[in-house]
Design a protein around this nucleic acid. Sequence first.
DNA 1: ATGTCC
Length: 515
Amino acid sequence: MSTQIKPDPKTKNRSSGERHAYTGPGMIATGEATALLPTETTPPIKVFGTESIRETFDDLCLQQAVNSRLAPGVTDLVLNPDAHCGYGAPVGCVMVSPTHIYPGPVGVDIKCSMSLLQLDLPAEAIEDRKVRRQLISAICQRTPTGAGKGQRSAVKSRHVNRTLGKQLVVEGASDDVCKALGIPTNWAHRCEDSFHVGHDETADALESRLETLLHRRDMTNFTDKMQQLGSYGGGNHFGECEVVEVGDNDRAREVAETFGLHDGKVAFLSHCGSRGFGHILASGQFKSLQTKFDQWGIPLPAGDRQLVYAPLGSGEANDYIDDMSLGANFATVNHLLINALVLEAFQEVFPGVKGNLVYFISHNIARKEIVDDRPAWVHRKGATRAIPGGHHSLRETPFAKSGHPILLPGNPCDGSAVMVADEGAAASCYSVNHGAGRVLGRRHAKRVLDQTTVDSEFESNDVLSNCRKYPIDEAPAAYKDFNEVLRSVKSAGLASEVARLKARFVIKDASKADD
DNA sequence: ATGTCC
């Protein structure tokens, strides 16, 4: 019986565009979870998606999932409902290996993440569109959007000099770094990871790796890159003002209280990563490893250059882990500073208003976790960690009993969600999706979607934006049906909804909207 | 995603 989709290098860089809910031999359906590719020696890929969600997986996405599953040292592969084509591995997958590290399934934006700030401000306070316009202006003055954009003059008091830059990429959100940047130090307790260490589990390894990197030609602008701290960047990154709607059941209300979420109040959701600094590190690693594969003549997994890897313990693996951690530390401090600046912007419009970080959690990172009783690197590429209450790894956190917050951006018109993991999440390597997931490529979206329709959808939902023209490749219709994605997660027993977030205004990079 | 091609 043929149960495999054979990896075909010829198709790796293009999509046929065909979509089908794969139901052929080899697919196991258990509730809404299904599996691809079981053989006697290879456990299946676990696919989480309702039938209509599985129709959104195109050929290339499934091919990338199979390629990743069959790559050296990989013991588990999970495909989430928001999955779509990525860099070697699909965006929306979890790849586990106890023996190898893979840069592709972390991606070019190291530690791209979500964070949520809860404000002590009733929804009615921002009902007036003029007030929301003031907030948009105050926020854009402090946290700019767009590629290459760095700090605005309004945040001079939080200037990042070279010494502080070096300290923050090595230490992450340490007390000293937080104090130097005006970030409340207790926010570090509301991070999935407030800092990352080097390959030997110490910060010393990062310090010495950084010294090496600073001699590299592409790192001569290190100090400039540190000026991007507190900025969003472009693409799918955004800031979004929300109204919290806690779910109408006892568990949601109880968990929301632990999370510090307040029904009917204003919150602010942010999506960004490690900016130019992370990009230099990630692209440097791809180039370096690809060159070594060429020199050594080692076969690439499925012939795909984007699936280069390094065996743990090798100098290459150590360097990758160190570079990833340096980038991750930048992303962490970037998010916390953005939240501090957004709070400052709210205080400009509403003097004295208080705000607290609900959580900061990544969807592009490899973490060392215990899987099947042994340490393994869990690569989450467009996937969010989902650990339920009572799990040993949450013991020292404010979420030991409840499980930690899971922050899932949907779209500005249908809303976003805060979830909490259920016991069933063990089946997905303690992971869920990272959002809605693309259903149209950027070029495709620009061809088939209409600006007027997008604008009127925002208007009818009374969602404002800083953009004169909202980027059409970021329109809600370019993404999957968020409710169907959430249904996939809930019906598979992975996580439950705690709250919905209803957008009131969006901050995005519109500099490419006229392309 | 991105000093959007060193």
